[in-house]
Every structure is written in C-alpha cells, then in structure tokens.
C-alpha cells in the first residue's frame, strides 16, 4: 500500500508552499521533483558527497538525509536564492572569475556550504576554507580554484560591507 501523505508548510527561497508528502519522501526529492527546483543536486544519497547541501533554518544541511516532513515549518534556502535581479552575488561572481567550478554538479552544495562558512568566519585562512568545504566532494577542480574563489569572495564581501 502507498504510504499515507501528510500536509506540510515550508518556505523555500522566501516562497511558502503547502504540499502533501509521503513520510518517506526525501527533502532533496521534494525540492527537485516536488517543487521543480532542480538546482539542488543529488550525488550519493548517503550524506557524504554534500552536493545536496541547502540552508535549513540558516544551517547548512544535507537534504538527502532529511525527510520532507521534517521540513514542516522550516525556512529553506537553495542555490536558486543566491542571484538577485539577474545578477550573481559576490560569492557566485568569485566562483565565476576564479574558475571555481567545472562540471557544476557539486557547485550548489559548495556554494551553500561556503555561504555558511563566510557568514561564520568572514576572513578565513586557506586552511579554514579547506576545512570548511571538506564535507563537499568535487572531482573536477582539485579544490584549488574553489579555495581561491572563496578567498576572493571573502575579500569582496568585506570590501562591499566597508563601502556601505
């Protein structure tokens, strides 16, 4: 028998959704196939690769390890929330300028992880950046240009805040 659905209310990228979901539905699948937010990627479904990382009530979490029903009442941010009015934010811009991505599959998880990292530590050392993103696997870049990107973003964000 099909499991019975349960109604949840969840805010994703500032928009509120009310949906009926099966208790076993993964949050990653809910975001992708339920809400058609395909920016969040699924790479391992066992919480190691980090590609599906989102901000869940402000905290970076793996959406493959959370059921959609656990998101009832939560505020979620995905990669789709980053660019505003057709413009890349400073973190995205730094990844673009420093070639912080190749295939782009881990990139959404990498960006959401870096966002949290820079919020908690606005001027990290190289080693702190490396530790901060060590939970997201990238097989294309060898990480060097990702670290460069995050360092550049830290400087750019600091510069922008100083200018305000």
């Amino acid at each position: 028998m099909r499991p019975v659905g349960r109604k949840i209310t969840v805010t994703v990228n500032g928009e509120q959704y009310v949906r009926e979901v099966e208790p076993r539905l993964l949050l990653a699948d809910f975001l992708r196939h339920g809400l058609q937010l395909f920016g969040t990627h699924v790479g391992c479904e066992h919480g190691v690769c980090g590609a599906c990382t989102i901000l869940f009530d402000g905290v970076a979490q793996r959406s493959c390890l959370i059921f959609a029903i656990q998101a009832d009442g939560a505020e979620i941010l995905t990669v789709e929330s980053l660019a505003q009015s057709g413009k890349l934010n400073l973190l995205q811009k730094a990844f673009h300028e420093h070639h912080g991505l190749q295939c782009g599959f881990c990139t959404p998880g990498m960006l959401m992880t870096a966002l949290e990292l820079l919020r908690e530590n606005p001027s990290p050392s190289d080693q702190e950046v490396r530790a901060g993103i060590s939970g997201v696997l990238c097989r294309c870049t060898g990480y060097k240009q990702i670290v460069d990107s995050i360092n550049a973003a830290a400087l750019a964000i600091a510069g922008a805040e100083a200018a305000e």
Partner: peptide, 12 residues
C-alpha cells in the same frame, strides 16, 4: 557556462 551552473539553471 558558469552563469547557468552557479544559479541552479544547469540542465542535467
């Protein structure tokens, strides 16, 4: 290519 991949608009 980055512009779509950084904004969740890649098509895999």
């Amino acid at each position: 290519e980055d512009l779509r991949l950084l904004t969740g608009r890649g098509r895999f």
